[in-house]
Design a binder for these strands. Structure first.
Length: 439
RNA sequence: GUGGGCGUAGCUCAGCUGGUUAGAGCGCCAGGUUGUGGCCCUGGAGGCCGGGGGUUCAAGUCCCCUCGCUCACCCCA
């Protein structure tokens, strides 16, 4: 243990974390960009908030007896003795920011953030992972629940996923849940001896957790337990009906889960989860969310409704891999400059290309032409721009296409940018938006 | 927090019942082609065989400890 536990040798990333190198990292930035486009196009604005908060933000919102806050949170005192915590989930921070700045309601915010939990790592589970999420505060309308589910569902589909299912349920609210929990507790207590070891003990702190237990002992008991959905008050039942009607209207399929209990205390009414059918691991939840009409109050504000979701980016990408989704790679370079005259031409030409809005790179250290050509090939560039003694003398550049069989040709130095553009630069993106001033 | 599996070159791995200078493929570098990538050929660099201790004439190979990775439980994205 202790600070000297690291063995001699290369430094390494902390347990449960990982480095994502190029080009794999492209999947992260492109997915986040896709998400941003979707939510911004749906009226959500980015909330950029600190990665750590005062611990109380999470303790009050998530619930002390929840593992995420009780056992897994990275919590520490800073140099001023303030108790801080690295963000273990996304929603509480958004609500805290709302309370601090009081943006006009309804407030629709989105975020992309790393989350930290000190768990034992395993497949598809890390100590630092990334979530993309949205939160809508100040709207009680069931149609907002539907919108939130639609956004999540749409994002997953835009990522190319198809093999996943949506589970929805309702947690009730302050009117109906207490009565239900009492009834559930009574049922469970009557069968206390039949429960698994863990839940025999935890039964009293949070009876609803037992519904989540996968052990056969608990399953046996909960199979005959009173169902939450049968105990919703009129208002909650009507809300849930409207959510379901909305999903039906939008053609979003789902399965009803009468025992869907999300981990955090703040949920009320609608809860939902997306589970991948493709991930070959125990951790197949892609994301989830729900309504949390009591959270603002729990953190010290007036009663304010809210609903949102968080999606695990790593899991989405794992699911894409499992489903064989062909995630597009990064756009290739337009040109790679090969200079065998000392490097001065490469220096000037490369910068000129970049100033013209082209994607360009070059070789350094005066490597052999063969070595530079290998780098050009490996870079993925569409063309190599070769400058040798002849070109230097003639004031030209040899434009050599690398991706197709087209013939190479000499181009005057002043015309290189145009020639490279003409080879199909930016063919995918806005065709003529690349040019700046005419140079 | 609990349990299982595994730690040999940058990567994926081979090293039989312990026996001399530890191997392959890929990747990398160089040369074959003195102005040209992708294919091919040749050569090269690169390993305290995770770390420590023990058994033995001898350990990458056996034993113990430790660190790390990994999978599952728990919990969760």
């Amino acid at each position: 243990m202790g600070s000297e536990s690291e063995e001699r040798g290369a430094a390494r990333a902390p347990t449960g974390t990982r480095d994502v190198l190029w080009p794999e990292s492209w999947q992260f930035e492109s997915s986040a960009a896709r998400f941003a486009a979707l939510v911004q196009g749906s009226g959500y604005g980015l909330l950029q908030s600190p990665t750590f908060e005062y611990s109380s933000v999470f303790r009050k919102g998530i619930g002390e007896e929840n593992d995420v806050v009780g056992r897994e949170m990275y919590e520490f005192a800073d140099r001023d003795g303030k108790l801080l915590a690295l963000r273990p989930e996304g929603t509480a921070s958004v609500v805290r920011a709302y309370l601090q700045h009081r943006p006009t309601l309804p407030w629709k915010a989105w975020y992309a953030t790393p989350l930290f939990r000190h768990e034992r790592p395993q497949a598809a589970r890390y100590r630092q992972h990334h979530q993309l999420g949205i939160e809508a505060l100040g709207v009680a309308d069931a149609d907002m629940d539907v919108e939130v589910v639609w956004v999540a569902d749409t994002f997953l589909r835009e990522m190319g996923l198809a093999d996943f299912s949506l589970h929805i349920g309702s947690m009730g609210d302050g009117t109906c849940r207490p009565g239900y929990v009492a009834e559930l507790a009574a049922h469970l207590s009557a069968h206390r001896d039949e429960l698994c070891d863990d839940h025999r003990l935890r039964l009293d702190t949070n009876p609803m957790r037992v519904l989540d237990c996968k052990r056969p002992e608990c399953r046996g008991v909960t199979a005959g337990a009173p169902r939450l959905l049968d105990h919703l008050c009129e208002a909650c039942a009507a809300h849930f009906d409207r959510v379901r009607a909305g999903l039906d209207a939008l053609g979003i399929g789902y399965e009803l889960y009468d025992r869907l209990v999300r981990g955090f205390d703040y949920y009320t009414r609608t809860t939902f989860e997306f589970a991948s059918g493709a991930i070959d691991a125990a951790q197949n939840a892609l994301g989830g969310g729900g309504r949390y009409d009591g959270l603002v109050e729990m953190l010290g504000g007036e009663p304010t409704p809210g609903v949102g979701f968080g999606i695990g980016l790593e899991r989405v990408l794992i699911a894409c891999g499992a489903e064989g989704v062909d995630l597009s790679g990064p756009p290739p370079l337009d040109a790679f400059v090969v200079d065998v005259t000392g490097g001065g031409a490469a220096r000037d030409l490369t910068i000129a290309l970049r100033r013209a809005g082209l994607r360009a790179d070059r070789a350094f250290d005066g490597r052999s032409m063969k070595a530079q050509m290998k780098l050009a090939d490996r870079s993925g560039a569409r063309v190599a721009l070769i400058v040798g003694p002849e070109e230097l003398r003639a004031g030209t550049v040899l434009v050599r296409p690398l991706r197709d069989g087209a013939a190479q040709r000499q181009v005057g130095t002043a015309d290189v940018v145009g020639a490279v553009s003409g080879e199909g630069a930016f063919s995918g993106e806005g065709a003529s938006s690349g040019e700046r001033e005419g140079t």
